[in-house]
Amino acid sequence: MDASSEAPESAGRGRRHTWPLRALARVVMAPGFVLALWAAQLLLAKLLAGPGRAAAEAAMRNFTWFDDGHRLRAVTELLIEEPAVAAAIATSLSASAVLAAVFSVVAAPPILTRLDGERSLAWIFGSAGRELPAMVVQSGYGLVFRALCTSLAAVPVALLGAGGLPLALLLASFPLLVLDRARAAVVLDDARPLHPMTFLRAIGHVAKRPLWWLSGALIESLKLAVVVGALALVIQAGPSPGGIWVARAAGLAGLIFGLWRVALAVEDRRA
């Protein structure tokens, strides 16, 4: 047994309410895995942003913008005059979304397996292939449930305005936690891989654990805040050499938050 699984087990017999922190420990104890995922994410983002960056550079030819006080006007002029730039950026974002969705399905078993303490690379990555049909089906259930919950999440915002945001985040993150639980049940507990009851049981399972739900929602909100905040910072800071590294660091933070949320499902089995 490795350190990452030993520590939570011993703690689990004592103070159960600290299990979200033990879930975080599972992530921290797999630094190589985290860094590998981060590097892959950086590489993908860099590659995907390449055409947009190249299109913008080509559109500027040998010219250079000269007035920081009118940067917004310059960007707008560029996008109006060179629609290829906007098209390239939109395409890269669409590609990112598709890749993220594929990654979400394919990478879930390796992530769960690694967070459960498995260190054999062959077993970890092999799980992606073994569990692929199950992940596709469970993700499909998750998609439907997510659409439902997201619609419900709009209600408190519409009724209460900004005051309804915490409740909306709770509702919006619920299907993610349910999907984490359903996937963990399939990958780690040999639950029926394609059966909808696996997913339905996961709904009840999470609903009965407010601490999980609450901490999962908080972690998911933090993740969103970090990555969106970093994007806002890059936009707000303007062209600066350090800006993109802030986003990259935020990407790492977001990755850790995401893994932490998944680790809650793994830790729940031990609790």
Partner: peptide, 8 residues
């Protein structure tokens, strides 16, 4: 663009 891709 890159930061948005990272966010997505």
């Amino acid at each position: 663009d890159e930061a948005a891709n990272l966010a997505v």
